[in-house]
Structure formats: structure tokens, C-alpha cells
Design a protein around this nucleic acid. Structure first.
Length: 962
RNA sequence: GCCCGGGUGGCGGAAUCGGCAGACGCGGAGGGCUUAAACCCCUCUGACCCAACGGUCGUGCGGGUUCGAACCCCGCCCCGGGCACCA
């Protein structure tokens, strides 16, 4: 650290240096831990504290908890943590009981893969990583309640993850009541005949298996065949992002097959409308809400049935008004009707482009489906060329009776709508391209406006052969039967939908893009499912008293692998092999019987779907959270905060979780709410996305990243070991080799300086570049504060009991008011700027008088303490206080000192500032105008002209318009 | 392609109910302290013109509204993030 002050040898003995900071920080961290300073009392239970009751004012501040990685932290990680810590400390000084802790989302793939490579048990590496990260977080001075720290891999934690799974499994969604209810109530409705069974027979005549199936069809957690990327060579299912464009696995380069597999699913789609509507309750940014809305993807349209020889083919469309332009249909390769639609031979006169050169439709389709199955979702989506084959079958367009050919093409996805579309090539660009490629007719059904043709340099025409692309927009309907002449899409949609409904060919429908959540993994390092199967293969939920289902110990963490080309192999997860785990004899209420355990594990999302609730009551062994404790921290508080719907008061984390984690957690929370286990409708009331710390990264001529710390800048270029390198810019991290360790910052400046620098760099929600060179500025600031209060030679305080002068007091009270406002709004950068300004003023005062007024010193230390807690504690103690500054009341600004007697007002002539006048703060418009017009510079600027208009904004400006 | 952000000095950023553009920090220049240096303290630091007073320009680009626009409107460009053959 060439620019560190540590290189100088003859510093004053009590200068605030990195060494002094290290000493101060270590001492206060020890004392905080020893005294349990940050332990927030619960209203009841073991975490209640006799001497410190849980008051009415509570605040739950939550960070997105980290995955305990083996490489530890870099300075980009704690940005959000420092922000929440500053806010929590600020709130404690307002007399608020703050729940603030940190846990670890420790199940997941990296630990498992590390275990596979090294043979070390994930539990061992996880424990070591957690310990290391706890140490690093403590070094930052974060004010966590350590009693509440949780680890998702702890059986005392995942016991309750399993318990919540059972709650979901044992529930169904009552669409008319719009809420989840216990499955027993559904069974009662069936039994009482209030609800029809699937085939209409009486409940009493159904066998056990039939009853089981009827209930399973309603459960919020259910088993279903779901499409997955199966990689026999790895023996596991892989994510889209792990599949290359060639349809092979990232690791090992094995073939990956798209196929369906029996998987646990969560019926999150049942909650689509509530997840959408309740966004209105939340104090989230509009950007974030819109991401969730787009993901849920509600659309209004119609389901339309096209008759075929194989039965009705149903499509979903958002534009039923375009039905007259539908000239062909496309079904996804996985569509269940593909086989039935496949004609025995090509109809006479089939266009050769439709057959892919195959002798029969069956051959063409089999080949096409095989090719589609070997492509990843990603590859299917990236392909620009339109591919597909004709089934040999035709459907009948219900509005005009025209026969339309049915194709199989992979640009239609099984996962959305019905997996089949009606293609309207004149109004949809994808359909347009497909029609062009396959020589299908493209009749115009809406007349584009004249500008549309003008912009494309063609003459107006309804002959689509002259069109370069599909027309998407509003236009008068043509060649559309009953719609001809209509101009309103909304009106046309309504008319067509009514027409279809009357004739039984379709219905208005609401569709969501949101799909059910694939919830099982064939892996080792996750929560086992609390489910067993009886001799008939029927799933049975374990009773809560049998929880936790412990993850069994083993030293074989890899799944069984297969011949890489054996598409029809089936995964054998690590738990599958453990007979003592898999085969059990249990008494589930009907005597001891043999069962087989489910050998899937839950996804990493599971543990993070409810962790905020466990922070509330981490030691509870009777329930996942005590209801009274839950109500205190999470419930609405109509008396205290009428507009607050309950939930975590402030949740801070990266925008990468804007959709999945936040949606899954909201879903679980809503189920728990419906079942009466939690008291708020939403888990995270206010959400704040912190930005990323970015940094320069450098690539050599081969395009590989080199260690950024070793790069030097000279001669207008960048050099690494004498070779030129290219500068890039990106998120700080290991992959770009541009990470800066917090340890370097502690050594050079201390934790308080690092905290201050990260908070001063810019707004918390903005990404910003790391610049080590700039850190010194915040170190100098702390140093100046220290020097204003402490003699650097003797270490003695340099304060006095004289009152501060009027100017200093006014400035101090303005600073109090401003800093308080900015902290409340998480604008720490501007709060720090104001504190620096005040301290710069104070430097002048101290150099004039030789000491600082004690009253000013005390307040300054209080204002600084959330940001730089260690040095603030040290100064507070030096000022004679024995208690920690943590709960000392935040200073209150005197309103009388916030208003100035006189103000300086700019005077504009024709909108340009020509002068400034000093007037009493209370000056009215007449006084302002008169003063302005009497000003020499203004007179000069007017040059004898008389203003024809005068704008006076009291307190702001005067503008004379000539 | 769609959606969401964002473009302000050499750098990070202030200032948005439409009212003094550039707070604060870094970097740079000059001065003080010192035998000397470091540290520290003070002053200056958007560009251009001017000896100076002062003036002109200036918040990605082009228009517009307004007494007045970084901020509002229209049309573009660029950067970041997210989503995507979504029917």
C-alpha cells in the first residue's frame, strides 16, 4: 500500500492510524460479544430479556443470507451488509428494538461438487466455511444478534423446512375461497358430496388408490412428469445454463437429453393472481415489481378449439380477433396429440418443403422430435431459422370453416399455454417467417396505416407478398367476416370470443406465463423429503413427530453414472443407494409396516423460503416460530404503523434474486398465512436492491484475465509483467481476477474506514467502481475527527466546557437534521458528505480555540456512530461514558436553529443569474423585487430596459424578464 | 426483439415539487510548516475567451414546452441489467 500512511515512521503516537484502528476495533468487538450488546429481546420465550423489554417500536432488518463459499469475502460482498448495519444501529438509537442477524444458505451444489472432487464431506467443508465467514463478518463490526444466526443445513433448522413442506403437501387451493386449506377439508367435501369426484362416482365407492389420486390432484405439492435435461454421463439432471448450445453438458461434454421425469412440483400457479395483486401492498421499486409482473405474465385472451380428425385441438391466443388470418397451426414436439395427428401418409400434393424429405409423416416427425429432444431449451430458442414438419393432418378454422395444415415445430413450447398455437402470419413476425419459409398463405386481416407503408418505402397494398414483415398494430379489419370495418382490437376480441362461446368453439381465458415449480433434485446435499411410499407405491406423508428426516451420512456423494448415450436410463441419486435409509419399517398409525423413503432432496431455494421466520425464534423446538414472537416481529401493527401490512421491514439484497427467490418465498409465506401459521400476507414489505461493486479487469492478448492487482498503467496503456493488456470493467469477483480482499483494507486503514468508504462511494442502490486509491479520503476524515477531539501527542481529550458559538451550533443542528433524514432514507453517501462538511468547520474552530466544545464533541460522536461504530465507541468512552453508545438516544435538532435569519437569493435577468442579493429570510415578494431592482449588477444587466414581467419565488429566486 | 435502469468535471458522485449545476471525496496545482521530506494545515481546480473586471458555452445527441429544463414532452444514440421463438 504505497499510499497508506503506515509507511511513515515518525507519526504522533496517538494519531488515528491503521494500527490504532485495529486495536480499537478488536477491543470493542470483544466487548460487544461479551456483553451481548446487539441481542434483541423477544416479547416472550428464551430470547426475552428481563432487563430490556421488547418495546412497541420494532424493526426487522434482513440481508439476503450468503452461501458460505470456500474463498471467503471480497470487498464487494459486504456493501449491503454495511448498509443494513448502519441502518440498524441508527434505528437502535431511535429507541427501536431491531432484529438483525445473519445466517447461511449452506445446502447446494458447490459444496457437493467439492466433496465429489476431494472426498471431504460437505458437512465438514460447510462448517469450516461458515466459521470463516462468521470471522470475516465480525471483523467488519456488524451488529448481528449472534444468538439468532442460522444454518440451513442444521437438522434443527431443516426439520422445520420439512415441516413446512408437509404443510404445503397437506394443503389444496380452494379457488373459490382464494386460499389454501387443509387437505382433510377437501376430503370432507368429497365425502359429503359437496364436491364432485373426478369421474363423478360417490366418494364412498372409491378404493383407497382412487381416493389417493383424487386428493393428489389437488395438493399444493405433487408428483408429476416434468421436462428436464437428463445427462446419463453425469448421472444427473442439469440446469439450462449447464447445457451447451450443442446440447451437451458443460462438465464432461456428455450428451444431454430433453425428457420427462417424475418430479416433485409446487403448485405456485394457484397463487398467480395473488402474487400479482399483492405487489400493491409492497414498498418495492417499480422496476422490481414490473420484473415480477412480467414473470407471472398474466394475459387475457381465449382458448379456441379447432376440429381435427383426431379430435379437438385447443390453442390459447391473446388475439382471438385475428382468427380469420389463421392459416396454419403449430404444436410443440412434445404435444400429447402429436401421435394422433400424424397421418399415415402425405396427402396428395404436399409441398416438398413440409416433409423434410421423409417418406411418411411418421418418419419425419420421429426424426424431428428426436432432434428437438437433443437440443437444450436455450438452443431451441436461439435458433433463428424456422424449422418444422407437417403432420399430414388438417384442422378446421372455426370462424370460416377453412382447412388449415397442422405442423410440429420447436418454436412452440409445451410449457406455455396449451402447447399449440394458431398461426396468424400477417400479424406475428415468427408466424410470418415460418409462412414464408414453408410457402404458406399470408392473408391480410388488418389494414396497416399509410405511415406504416411509407416508413418501409412500399406502396399501400393488402398484398402481403410486398410486405417485408408482419404488421403488428391497430388497423381496420379486412377479410375478417363479421369484423370487417371494425377498428377496435378490444371490441373485436370481445365479439369473436362471444361468437366462439355461443358455438362452443372457445372461451375467454386468462393465462399466466408462470409455471409450477420443479421442487426435487436427484442429489445429496439438500433436505430429504419427509415422504415414504407404501407397498403399492402410494406416497405417505410422515407425521411431524418423525421429523427431522436426517440426511444420512455417506462417503459416496456422486450419483450413479450411465452410458452417456443411454437416454432411457433413470437417475439413481446418492440416497437411493443407502439401503438403511431407503428401506424402513414405520408405524404410520396402522401398525408397523415396511416403507420406502423418497430419495430426492429439496432445491437450495427451500431453505431460503422461510429463514426470516426462524431468525425470530431460532431455538424453538416446539414449532418453527412461536406465534406471539412471529406476531411481534412480522405481524401488522395497526396501532403503531397503520399503513404497514406486516412482514420484514427492510430486506436488502442483489437484484439477481428479483424473480425466483422472491417469488418462491412469497408463495411459501402465503401458504403459511392461509393456514394460519403467520400473521402477515407478505414476507418482505420493503425491499432494497443494493448495487454491485465493480472493478477494472484486464485481459492479455489471448483474452485471458490476468491478476488486476499486478497491472501497471504507463505510457497511456496497461501492462502486466511487461506485456500489454486490455482493460475491461465488470462485477468484482474471482472469475475476472479483480477481487480486492477486505483484509488488505483492514491492514491499511481498518474496518471503520472500509465501512465509511463503501457507504460514501455513491447511492446504495447503484453499482459503482472500486478504487483503492480513493479509500484514503475516508481514512483522513476519521483521522481529522479524531484529531479534533484527541491530542495526537498525549492521547488526552481536547474538549472544553465553553458553549459553541452561534454559527457552529446552527451548523451542528442542521447537520443533525440532515444526517437523520438521509440515514432514514438509506442515503448514507450524502449523510457522510454533510458530516465531513461539519467536521471541516470544526477543524477551524478547534485550531482557533485549541479545543472542541464538549457538547459539540458528544453530538458529533453520536452522529458518526452508526457509520464508524468502533472509533465512535472509543471516543464515547473517552468522553467519560461507561455504557456502549449503541442505545444512546439519537440527537434531536432544535428547529429554531434550522432557520436562517438572512438568505442569499439569486437574481436572474431573462433566466440568467446576474447577481445575488442578501435579504431577511422573511422577505416577501415586494421586498425581494425592490431589492433586486436596486442591485447594481442587475441595473447594469437591464441596461435601462424595464422588465415586462417579474417572477418572484420567495426564498428561491427573482427573475426579471425584459 | 421486449421490459427495467442509467448517461453530469480527469475519476467516484451532489443537486430532480422545474428555480444558484458540479456539494463531499479522490486526483492535480500553488502556498504554509520542516534543515529536508513525509504527515498535517490553507488556497485554487468544468471548458473556452480576457491583463483584469467580466463574458460565452456547458449535464449523451436533435427538437419542443416554459420567465426559467440535468429534471417535463417528442425523436434518436450509447451503456448496464433482466427476460424471450410466451402465441
Amino acid at each position: 500500500m504505497s499510499n497508506s500512511v503506515e509507511t511513515s515512521s515518525d507519526l504522533p503516537p496517538y494519531r488515528y492510524s491503521a494500527a490504532l484502528a485495529a486495536d480499537i476495533e478488536a477491543r470493542w468487538q470483544e466487548r460487544w460479544a461479551a456483553e451481548g450488546t446487539f441481542e434483541a429481546p423477544n416479547p416472550t420465550g428464551p430470547l426475552a430479556r428481563a432487563g430490556r423489554p421488547a418495546g412497541d417500536r420494532k424493526l426487522f432488518v434482513l440481508d439476503m443470507f450468503p452461501y458460505p463459499s470456500g474463498v471467503g469475502l471480497h470487498v464487494g460482498h459486504p456493501l449491503g451488509y454495511i448498509g443494513t448495519d448502519v441502518y440498524s444501529r441508527f434505528q437502535r438509537m431511535q429507541g427501536t428494538n431491531v432484529l438483525y442477524s445473519m445466517g447461511f444458505d449452506a445446502f447446494g451444489l458447490p459444496a457437493e461438487q467439492y466433496a465429489v472432487q476431494t472426498g471431504q464431506h460437505p458437512a465438514v467443508t460447510t462448517a469450516a466455511n461458515v466459521a470463516n465467514m462468521r470471522r470475516q463478518l465480525r471483523r467488519l463490526g456488524l451488529s448481528h444478534d449472534l444468538r439468532r444466526s442460522i444454518d440451513t443445513t442444521d437438522p434443527d433448522y431443516y426439520r422445520w423446512t420439512q415441516w413446512i413442506f408437509l404443510q404445503i403437501y397437506n394443503s389444496w387451493y380452494d379457488a373459490s375461497a382464494r386460499r389454501a386449506r387443509p387437505i382433510a377439508e377437501l376430503e370432507a367435501e368429497f365425502a359429503a358430496g359437496l364436491r364432485a369426484t373426478p369421474d363423478g362416482r360417490a366418494w364412498s365407492v372409491l378404493g383407497a388408490t382412487e381416493r389417493h389420486a383424487a386428493l393428489d390432484a389437488y395438493r399444493l405439492a405433487y408428483l408429476s412428469d416434468a421436462p428436464v435435461n437428463w445427462c446419463p454421463g453425469l448421472g444427473t439432471v442439469v440446469a439450462n445454463e449447464e447445457v451447451t448450445a450443442e446440447g451437451r453438458s458443460d462438465r464432461g461434454n456428455f450428451p444431454v437429453f430433453r425428457r420427462t421425469m417424475r418430479q416433485w412440483m409446487m403448485r405456485i400457479t394457484a397463487y398467480a393472481d395473488r402474487l400479482l395483486e399483492d405487489l400493491d401492498l409492497l414498498q418495492w421499486t417499480d422496476a422490481l415489481k414490473s420484473m415480477q409482473r412480467n414473470w407471472i405474465g398474466r394475459s387475457e385472451g381465449a382458448r379456441v378449439r379447432f376440429a381435427t380428425a383426431a379430435g379437438d385441438l385447443e390453442v390459447y391466443t391473446t388475439r382471438p380477433d385475428t382468427l380469420f388470418g389463421a392459416t396454419f397451426m403449430v404444436v410443440a414436439p412434445e404435444h400429447p396429440m402429436v401421435a394422433a395427428l400424424t397421418a399415415p401418409k402425405w396427402p396428395a400434393g404436399t409441398d416438398p418443403r413440409w416433409t423434410a424429405g421423409a417418406g411418411t409423416p411418421a418418419q419425419a416427425i420421429a426424426e424431428y422430435r428426436r432432434a428437438a429432444a437433443s437440443k437444450s431449451d436455450l438452443a431451441r430458442q436461439e435458433t433463428k431459422d424456422k424449422t418444422g414438419v407437417f403432420t399430414g393432418s388438417f384442422a378446421t378454422n372455426p370462424v370460416n370453416g377453412e382447412p388449415v395444415p397442422v405442423f410440429v415445430a420447436d418454436y412452440v413450447l409445451m410449457g406455455y399455454g396449451t402447447g399449440a398455437i394458431m398461426a396468424v402470419p400477417c400479424g406475428d413476425q415468427r408466424d410470418f417467417e415460418y409462412a414464408r419459409a414453408f410457402g404458406l398463405p399470408i392473408p391480410a386481416i388488418q389494414e396497416p396505416p399509410a405511415e406504416w407503408f411509407a416508413e418501409r418505402g412500399i406502396t399501400s397494398s393488402l398484398d402481403t407478398a410486398t410486405w417485408p414483415e408482419a404488421f403488428v398494430g391497430d388497423g381496420r379489419y379486412v377479410q375478417s367476416g363479421m369484423l370487417d370495418g371494425d377498428r377496435s382490437i378490444a371490441d373485436a376480441k370481445r365479439r369473436i370470443t362471444d361468437w366462439l362461446e355461443v358455438r362452443g368453439r372457445g372461451t375467454g381465458a386468462i393465462q399466466y406465463k408462470l409455471r409450477d415449480w420443479l421442487f426435487s433434485r436427484q442429489r445429496y446435499w439438500g433436505e430429504p423429503f419427509p415422504i415414504v411410499y407404501d407397498a403399492n407405491g402410494g406416497a405417505r406423508a410422515l407425521p411431524p413427530e418423525m421429523l427431522p428426516v436426517l440426511l444420512p451420512d455417506t462417503d459416496q456423494f456422486s450419483p450413479r453414472t450411465f452410458d452417456p448415450d443411454d437416454e432411457h436410463s433413470d437417475p439413481e441419486s446418492p440416497l437411493d443407494r443407502l439401503d438403511h435409509f431407503k428401506h424402513v419399517i414405520l408405524d404410520l398409525g396402522d401398525g408397523p409396516q415396511p416403507y420406502t423413503r423418497d430419495t430426492n432432496v429439496m432445491p437450495q431455494w427451500a431453505g431460503s423460503c422461510w429463514y426470516e421466520l426462524r431468525y425470530c425464534d431460532p431455538t424453538n423446538t416446539n414449532s418453527f416460530v412461536d406465534p406471539a414472537v412471529e406476531r411481534y416481529w412480522m405481524g401488522p401493527q395497526p396501532e403503531v404503523r397503520p399503513d404497514h401490512p406486516g412482514g420484514v421491514d427492510l430486506y436488502v439484497g442483489g437484484v439477481e434474486h428479483a424473480v425466483l427467490h422472491l417469488l418462491y418465498a412469497r408463495f411459501w409465506h402465503k401458504v403459511l398465512y392461509d393456514l394460519g401459521h403467520v400473521s402477515s400476507k407478505e414476507p418482505y414489505t420493503r425491499l432494497f436492491n443494493q448495487g454491485y461493486i465493480q472493478a477494472f479487469a484486464y485481459t492479455d492478448e489471448r483474452g485471458l484475465y490476468v491478476e488486476a492487482a499486478e497491472v501497471e498503467e504507463r505510457d497511456g496503456g496497461f501492462w502486466h509483467h511487461g506485456k500489454p493488456v486490455h482493460r475491461e470493467y465488470g462485477k468484482m469477483g474471482k472469475s475476472l481476477r479483480n477481487a480486492v480482499s477486505p483484509d488488505e483494507m483492514y491492514d491499511a486503514y481498518g474496518a471503520d474506514t472500509l465501512r465509511l468508504y463503501e457507504m460514501s462511494m455513491g447511492p446504495l442502490d447503484a453499482s459503482r467502481p472500486w478504487n483503492t486509491r480513493d479509500v484514503i479520503g475516508m481514512h483522513r476524515f476519521v483521522q481529522r475527527v479524531w484529531r479534533n477531539l484527541v491530542d495526537e501527542g498525549s492521547g488526552a481529550l481536547r474538549i472544553d466546557d465553553s458553549p459553541a458559538n452561534d454559527e457552529t451550533r446552527r451548523l451542528l443542528h442542521k447537520t443533525i437534521a440532515f444526517v437523520g433524514e438521509e440515514m432514514e432514507a438509506l442515503r448514507f453517501n450524502t449523510a457522510i458528505a454533510k458530516l465531513i462538511e461539519f467536521n471541516n468547520h470544526l477543524t477551524g474552530v478547534v485550531s482557533e480555540h485549541g479545543s472542541c466544545p464538549a457538547e459539540v464533541a458528544r453530538t458529533m460522536v453520536q452522529l458518526l456512530s452508526p457509520l464508524v461504530p468502533h472509533v465512535a465507541e472509543e471516543l464515547w468512552a473517552k468522553l467519560g461514558h461507561t455504557e456502549s453508545i449503541t442505545y444512546v438516544a439519537w440527537p434531536v435538532a432544535d428547529p429554531a436553529l434550522l432557520v436562517d435569519h438572512t438568505v442569499e437569493i439569486p437574481v436572474q435577468v431573462n433566466g440568467k443569474v446576474r447577481s445575488r442579493i442578501v435579504v431577511p429570510a422573511s422577505a416577501d415578494e415586494a421586498v425581494l423585487e425592490a431589492t433586486a431592482r436596486a442591485d447594481d449588477k442587475v441595473v447594469a444587466a437591464l441596461a435601462g430596459a424595464s422588465p415586462r414581467k417579474v417572477i418572484v419565488v420567495p426564498g428561491r429566486l427573482v427573475n426579471l424578464v425584459v
